[in-house]
């Protein structure tokens, strides 16, 4: 698989490593603040709600809603157009950018704002697994 994937790859940093390690293990991990009790995304070294550094990594449900999206027709390297770039509102609250994987070429008819989604893990290299989403059954 390594060498074949041409898309841009993240280079994890100390505060994000548990997220990427989780993805590789098929888990969507979020940092939760042990002081104010809120999760956040993207992962920081301090809670962006209260500045606490007492963070606890917990597995998220993997469920979310399609907050907004685009269908890109000019592919980035490693992608085949058209494909969906979406902002997903996780059931736990934080929003993240990802893709919505559809059966067949995506069209606006298939995608309704606020539709239910669930995470799916795409191991693009030996090291990196990207969490993408698909319509929930």
């Amino acid at each position: 698989m390594d060498g074949a994937y041409e898309g841009k790859l993240p280079r994890p940093t100390p505060e994000t490593l548990p997220f990427w390690q989780g993805a590789k293990a098929g888990k969507l991990m979020l940092p939760w603040c042990e002081d104010c009790g809120q999760p956040h995304f993207y992962p920081r070294a301090i809670c962006p709600h209260c500045l606490s550094d007492r963070l606890d990594w917990r597995q998220a449900s993997g469920r979310g809603k399609l907050h907004t999206y685009v269908i890109n027709h000019r592919a980035a390297k490693g992608f085949t157009a058209p494909y969906v770039i979406a902002v997903v509102e996780l059931a736990e609250g934080p929003r993240m950018l990802s893709n919505v994987v559809t059966e067949g070429e995506p069209t606006p008819d298939m995608l309704t704002i606020d539709m239910d989604l669930e995470v799916t893990f795409d191991p693009v290299t030996d090291d990196i697994t990207l969490p993408r989403f698909r319509p929930a059954p």
Binding site: L9, T68, R74, I85
Partner: peptide, 27 residues
């Protein structure tokens, strides 16, 4: 690739401003 954008937007196929300035529109 180690920046927040390099980790949490670019790997999902953003490609220049047309793929990001467009995101708020449908909402």
């Amino acid at each position: 690739p180690a920046s927040p954008n390099g980790q949490f937007e670019q790997p999902f196929g953003t490609r220049g401003a047309p793929t990001t300035y467009s995101l708020p529109v449908l909402r």
